[in-house]
Amino acid sequence: MNASQTLKLYTTESRYEWLKTLRMPGFVLPSLLFPVVFYSFFGIIFNPSGSSSGAATYLLATYGVFGVIGPALFGFGVGLAIEREQGWLALKRISPAPAMAYFTAKTSTAMIFAALIIIELFAVAALFGKVAMATSDWLFLAAILLVGTIPFCAMGLALGSWSRGKSAPALVNLIYLPLAFLSGLWIPIQMMPAVIQELALALPPYHLAQLALKVLGKDQGYDVLLHIGYLAVFTAICLWVAQRGLKRADGQGA
């Protein structure tokens, strides 16, 4: 296969993954609406500091993280679990398309959703939250959030390779929502009890949120490399767990 055929194959896979996902209102609406609705409520409308945009700016970063990891976890986690169980994954594995094309298609779909969520949040923040930043900071924040979806795609992959199709949505919710709260995505981490602040150090969304907050100068002051290192190791572990999960499914003939 030459390079142009390979490129065409990857774009075809991504295109149909995108179409397939876009036609599921049960996935699209919550993914695109929840982060911006929550942010509007807690970051802007019920903002205790009134006209000062401090909280609106802080929460833009953390709700940004909350928003972008949703499609990554659900698209990969639930999507993979269902497609594995329905035998669609087996059909894909029989076809000559490389497995990477399938995973790339799922990652790119999660990133397009992430990009849409970032645009929504930025628009609301700038128009109604009076958030003002240098253009380079807007772009930098967007880039961190976008690249930050990758560890959560890996996490979704790990969850989806182990869970059953029917239980996957419940499982992902059960992990996603507490993880978001305990990582300080809804309420700033400094306002949490000391125990939770320490616990947060072990949670992946906390580290992505700290990276995003660093752009705004509102992080807790740990080294950038700590956060990046944590997320890199976490991604590697997730990929290993996913590989084990898919192998195990093989052995059962599933």
């Binding site: 996902t21 497609e83 029989i94």
Partner: peptide
Amino acid sequence: ITGAMLQETRLPDTL
């Protein structure tokens, strides 16, 4: 060079 129809396969509903 192979093609297959497998048992109990469901394709994605929205495609």
